[in-house]
Design a protein around this nucleic acid. Structure first.
Lengths: 215, 215, 215, 215
DNA sequence: AATGAATGAGGGTTCATTCAT
DNA sequence: TATGAATGAACCCTCATTCAT
């Protein structure tokens, strides 16, 4: 009755799967080489198809960038939502948001550094996405303020703190090596802990001195 | 008696001045747009000359990148040397190094983010400069270890700490605005203090909540 | 039953046909104007396409030159092989080689003068191809020596003789006019006969005084 | 009374000397690399001055080429005039002309191959100089005809014979090496003898088998 | 007379994008 | 769906030429 439909992916599902694969490959290439230096030829070759084939899934190179950007921000907001749902102090919410964001960025998509390339966006996309990014940053600053208010975070300039945190996080894509000694889990936890210590009202007395051996 | 020589710049001085101006403009463009997206036409236009004129001062676009890279690293080592000369605990040396580096990068050249574009370097330059950059990062890690040993810095993973610090610092070029409300002095001090709190064995109880009003 | 395949060229055949057309056009342009003076724009325009289209068939302008060079040498060695197979005295072999080479160069490709532009080759190509060209010239000198030994060729300096012969041959591309009064056949025969007289041990008493009327 | 004028070259003489030096250097560069590939920078550097300095002696690069061309043709006509003055058969006149031309080209200026670059001439120069070159070639053909008429030259196609002779001669610049084993004298004599044998009605029975040992 | 600076035109090459197949 | 072909714009770089000094 259901014929093959239960076991064979539909055409739409195949299409979507390829779309996602392309997106990830693009994110990876943009992150490694920068938007302009990464050519569609490179991306296509890694996927084993021709450059022209990509246009079945995305209308333009800039559209790929836009989507990377948007997905990264989505993940950010998703992290925010989960952290808020979990509750706790401002500091706890901040930590949960960052840990989730880091983990997703590192492990799932390597979109994060794409956020660096805002100037490569088309003017229209720029306007749209920068608005969202600012909202995300403002939300993070609000968590800092909340933490300062509830005593969990040390008094500090929220704007500067968020810039510092995001810089540290975006930089990960520059040094993280998928096949290196550090796992995505370890890095997202360890980096969150380190940044936590920067703003925590009650900083811990010691951190793991070697990520690989941390629990 | 001294003729004009005391007041009128010599040809060599003029040449050097233009060379530096070009270097700064290039650093700024590379930082804002990325190496590949920044065109020599843009840079030349900002300087009010033709693209071809640039070739009087640099043999190639890649040479500009190489020099930006090299200058940023020079500043880093200069900061290290000064900090070592000043002495103090590992933590103090680290802070002094970072504050100096930040200040120079922000105020003098905007080379810093160029360090992000290592993949744009020519293979030969890559080999040369990455060696130097690694030496710089190792020196910073050594300061962290020194601080851990002398009790001024909290036990932590030195490698991760340095990555985090450098990420935060390089990110500055993304958000710092020469004509904004924050001065270069204020930013370099405030950011250093924030990063210091992350690794200090004796974190301060409060930081300025608004950089503009900080002393 | 054979479908269209017997009459309609396949895509690969089309590709190869265009490649050859490009090669000939390039050889012609290089010969007429010299490698540096001949622009890809000119070549493309003659073929009715854009400059960028050429890059589907050759990776670079220098690759075109390299291939012209290589093909000309191939033809030379082919002539040598045929002459050797036909046998005869050293003089006969020399004549057969030259006549074949001339005919092919004039009629098929106009690569010959490209051999003049060895300095335009990339260093790597230069090393490779000059080696082959030297081998070709040595083979010609050996034919001369063979002819001297078997009495068919007058005693002379083989090196100078070969230089002279090749100079005369390469020069053809400067004055030969595809649409002129002289046919490729006539020229290759007449020029070979003239050069033959230079080195023959038994020079003929007369040559045609007008190529057009020669049989 | 004559003050220094007898021993010190006048300003005009200095100027002329530099002009000639430049001309020779240009001819050499054009011959080696071709007109377009030879840059004024190269030429200037070899002369130890700046590119801009050259413009004191020649109004343009094309003017240098024109003059090279013109000088080569002058030498050709000079050879013709001397040969005619010396008298003899058509064959003797031809030999004398060629020997003189070759000797001057090789030893004095290296202009000869410049004659290859007629397409690099400016349209106006082209019209002027090609006229002269054609006159030169016609004069050579006339010598051939004269030789055929007086029985000193074998019946042959004069046009083809002259093309062949000129090709062999122009090619010299490709292989002649100022510092090689062959002297300019030896080459001009030996090559003339070889070409003579090609057209002589009474070809010699042997030629030197090694130029270096020829008298 | 000679130079360094600057220019404008042009060349080779890359690349995102389109289109017929 | 996927491809090879083709395009046009943009880029880096070179070079002959001009000009103020």
């Amino acid at each position: 009755m259901t014929a093959w439909s239960a076991v064979v992916p539909s055409r739409d599902e195949l299409h979507e799967a390829k779309r996602v694969a392309l997106l990830r490959e693009a994110a990876s290439a943009f992150t490694r080489k920068g938007f302009h230096a990464a050519s569609l030829d490179d991306i296509a070759q890694k996927l084993g198809v021709t450059k022209a084939a990509l246009y079945h899934y995305f209308p333009s190179k800039h559209a790929l960038l836009r989507e990377c950007f948007a997905r990264a921000l989505e993940v950010g907001f998703q992290g925010l939502a989960r952290a808020r749902a979990q509750g706790g102090s401002g500091r706890e919410k901040l930590n949960n948001t960052l840990r989730f964001y880091l983990h997703e960025m590192i492990d799932e998509l390597s979109c994060c550094v794409v956020l660096t390339e805002e100037n490569a966006l088309l003017p229209d996309d720029y306007v749209d996405l920068l608005k969202v990014r600012d909202r995300f940053e403002r939300a993070l600053r609000d968590l800092i303020r909340e933490g300062i208010a509830d005593g969990s975070i040390v008094p500090c300039d929220p704007k500067l703190a968020v810039f510092t945190i995001l810089g540290a996080i975006h930089w990960v894509s520059k040094w993280f090596n998928q096949s290196g000694a550090w796992s995505a889990d370890a890095v997202s936890t360890a980096l969150t802990d380190l940044l936590d210590r920067m703003v925590s009202a009650t900083p811990v007395a010691a951190l793991p001195t070697d990520i690989r051996t941390a629990t």
